[in-house]
């Protein structure tokens, strides 16, 4: 009976995640972890589209911002209930995502990347310039914290941490179910060869569109959570800088892997918090890191770990085989 199994590891991680507020008595760490969970949800969205379906989207910071601003506007200006506004923000992001996806997905490869980069920039410019709605560069202030559900309130750092953690877990479970279903296999087939996928009767456009809308949904959800957690948003959250940050989390963790987004986001957020003095110049390290990772470990840390595991297993197998071979010769 082995103790170090995948299942036990996951249970240990879950226990650690749930007991973290009691272990860390410091609100600062809790805040940082909550924030990185929020980013991780957005990164899962990008991963579904870029990692599994093979379409590099550079517009997701824009969808993140749409989610954040929808929640902000619905709660501040329309004075809606938080939970209604959260659902509303997700719906708004999905509808905009659907409309953009319908057009964007007609393009492929480089064109898609450039197209989405421009879409992201347009979203940013619109938020920045449309002062009547979004308050422009002044930003949106006074977004309420998540409202209470019956007796459960979300005023403390720990309660918000649990809320975001639950959303993150839900997202991971959804991702797991998608990837291990026929739908997920379909996405991977499209990534590997779209022409081949179409030949075997997959409706590529329909599948790409659902992947796109789902990924914008995750980005929008993350944005809405971000808005209610930070309680102040400015147009900067839709900028390309954020997009590249998210992309880096994904790449370092491992694009096209289930654990990658979480690993990458946690690692890089914690790293950059500890390298505060580098804040302005952190790209001096992270930029080359991104390039090196894509050259040498194209599937990031998670991919490298799989590779290492596989090699070890192969080695063991070949040793066992050699052993049997020797015994057979002796006998």
């Amino acid at each position: 009976m082995r103790i170090v199994t995948k299942r036990n590891g996951l249970i240990a991680l879950l226990i650690l995640a749930f007991s973290f507020p009691y272990i860390a008595q410091n609100d600062y760490y809790l805040h940082m972890l909550t924030l990185s969970f929020i980013w991780a949800i957005a990164v899962y969205g990008i991963n579904l589209l870029s990692g599994y379906t093979g379409y590099l989207s550079l517009a997701h910071a824009g969808f993140f911002a749409i989610g954040a601003y929808s929640l902000g506007l619905l709660t501040v200006k329309a004075e809606m209930n938080f939970w209604l506004a959260l659902a509303g923000a997700c719906v708004i992001t999905c509808v905009i995502g659907l409309l953009i996806g319908l057009i964007a997905l007609r393009t492929k490869e480089h064109f898609f990347a450039i197209y989405t980069l421009c879409v992201g920039y347009i979203i940013y410019l619109v938020i920045d310039k449309w002062e009547g709605l979004t308050e422009g560069v002044r930003g949106l202030i006074g977004i309420p914290a998540p409202g209470s559900i019956g007796p459960i309130t979300f005023d403390t750092a720990a309660s918000q941490y649990y809320l975001v953690l639950l959303f993150l877990l839900a997202v991971i479970v959804i991702m797991y179910r998608i990837i291990h279903s026929l739908t997920g296999r379909t996405y991977i087939a499209i990534r590997n060869s779209e022409d081949l996928a179409r030949t075997i009767g997959i409706s590529t456009m329909k599948n790409k569109l659902t992947a796109f809308v789902l990924s914008t949904f995750f980005a929008g959800l993350a944005g809405a959570l971000y808005a209610s957690f930070i309680r102040f948003i400015g147009p900067d959250i839709g900028s390309t800088a954020i997009m590249f940050d998210l992309l880096m989390y994904l790449l370092v963790g491992g694009i096209g892997t289930l654990s990658g987004p979480l690993v990458g986001t946690l690692l890089l957020v914690i790293l950059s918090q500890n390298l505060q003095f580098l804040q302005k110049y952190r790209m001096l390290i992270f930029g080359p890191l991104l390039t090196l990772i894509i050259i040498f470990y194209p599937r990031g840390l998670a991919g490298a770990a799989f590779e290492w595991q596989r090699k070890r297993r192969d080695k063991k197998l070949s040793m066992v085989r050699a052993d049997m071979h020797m015994k057979a010769e002796e006998g």
Binding site: S50, E109, L247, G287, T291
Partner: peptide, 24 residues
């Protein structure tokens, strides 16, 4: 010989580095 996704990401990495470098 890598998939087309990789060139783009490598280029973005270089972009981020050069900008930080200029700022530095």
């Amino acid at each position: 010989d890598a998939p087309p996704l990789h060139d783009k990401i490598a280029a973005i990495g270089i972009l981020l580095f050069l900008e930080a470098f200029a700022q530095f």
